[in-house]
Design a binder for these strands. Structure first.
Lengths: 221, 221
DNA sequence: CCGGACTAATTGTGATCACAGTTTTACGGC
DNA sequence: GCCGTAAAACTGTGATCACAATTAGTCCGG
């Protein structure tokens, strides 16, 4: 467990990524309680790096900490929270897409096409985890190109908070509930360097996804 | 240094607030390097709670961590970063103001008037720290009323990142560089329950402040 | 068969130490 | 007097322990 040092990534970063993935893909259910030691045992590390990772996730509101007994839990899903997250995402992410459209080259197009093929494959197979990973990869490969670190970080934080909601959608409506995405539409706009088209495509993509989540959340809190 | 327990706030939270204040008021200069042990010594606590607080501040991008030697520093001010932060603030904060306008009562009005008087007093005296504290208090007393936790948290994060820039403005143009705010205008709109008026007032308030910061940053990187 | 009290296990927090890099300081050779 | 090198100081990271508080569990009386 002692670190080899002079390595690349610290243990607490790996732990962060592990928990982040678990949250985004919904492997840890919203509302469920977690603890430093239980997470540490599960990931086969000492509680210390978990503590660091959790602190970070709490700051990003991906984990919540009960103010009275100071215990950790995954934030539960409320319609109000989802509404605010949707609003914020609908502002930042289309903006990032528009900026990226101005920096597009054939390499990016090819990369996005490859990822989108993976998204479609995951949908066809009904592979939830793979779909979520690929969908995330698509959006952030695009946002990466915007050259806007601050906004990209905001989008990352929002995505992390929305993650658990997504899993609920799959749980309720099944894997084919999210079939229709606007990725192809976005790629077409990017090819033409059409910033406004990319903005609209991503906005529509988010909007449709969020609508499904809203419906799922309202169905049962 | 051992905690009394059953108390209200943990040490790492107090440390967080202390560093946060130091950053917002610009007592720690942008670009300056800090360390866990030096902060701990300065605040008369052990390195442990500082570590927790710093982890949180790094997640909020109020502190930066050098990816190669893992050392801590206050993020330096670039025109690009400021532009993105401005854009984000100009979206969230007016939205919060508009929502708050719908929940306004005479208590809030009175509270805001009192705080605004303090702001003006600080400006008259040229008291930079007091101005910044009061200005922050004004905005967040307002945003508190919006009933939008997620958006309010976003605004808080942005404010924290912008804090160091503000101090630079004072350093360059003097304390009277920010005299004209739109707080009175905002209060008038709130009294009338005019959500759109509140939105415009806060947008103008931010816009003017940001313009001054932009000018100051461009003057010298 | 159920309920309440006492014990045991688990929780987050803080302190302290070890370790290995990195940076700074100091010193010695030319 | 100056430069390069070795030692000392300082850095973040991880492990481990102590502590008090809360939760879970268990056992006994009715």
């Amino acid at each position: 467990m002692r670190k080899p040092l002079a390595d690349q990534t610290a243990v607490h970063d790996q732990v962060y990524e592990a928990i982040r993935q678990a949250l985004i893909t919904g492997r840890i259910a919203p509302g469920k309680g977690v603890s430093l030691r239980s997470l540490a045992a599960e990931l086969n590390v000492s509680p210390m790096p978990v503590r660091d990772a959790v602190r970070r996730l709490v700051a990003e509101r991906a984990l919540a900490i009960n103010p009275v007994n100071k215990r950790l839990s995954v934030p539960s899903l409320t319609a109000d929270r989802l509404e605010q997250l949707s609003l914020a995402r609908l502002w930042v992410e289309p903006e990032l897409a528009a900026r990226a459209a101005k920096n597009t080259d054939t390499g990016l197009i090819r990369q996005l096409q490859a990822i989108d093929a993976d998204v479609d494959e995951a949908l066809r197979l009904g592979d939830v985890d793979r779909y979520m990973t690929a969908n995330h990869a698509f959006h952030f490969a695009l946002y990466e190109r915007a050259g806007a670190e601050v906004l990209k970080a905001m989008a990352g934080g929002l995505w992390l908070q929305v993650g658990p909601f997504m899993r609920v959608v799959f749980g309720r409506v099944g894997a084919d509930g999210l079939v229709a995405d606007r990725h192809a539409e976005a790629i077409t706009a990017l090819k033409a360097g059409d910033a406004d088209g990319a903005r609209r495509a991503i906005a529509a993509d988010l909007s449709e996804g969020m609508d499904k989540m809203r419906a799922a959340v309202e169905a049962s809190p």
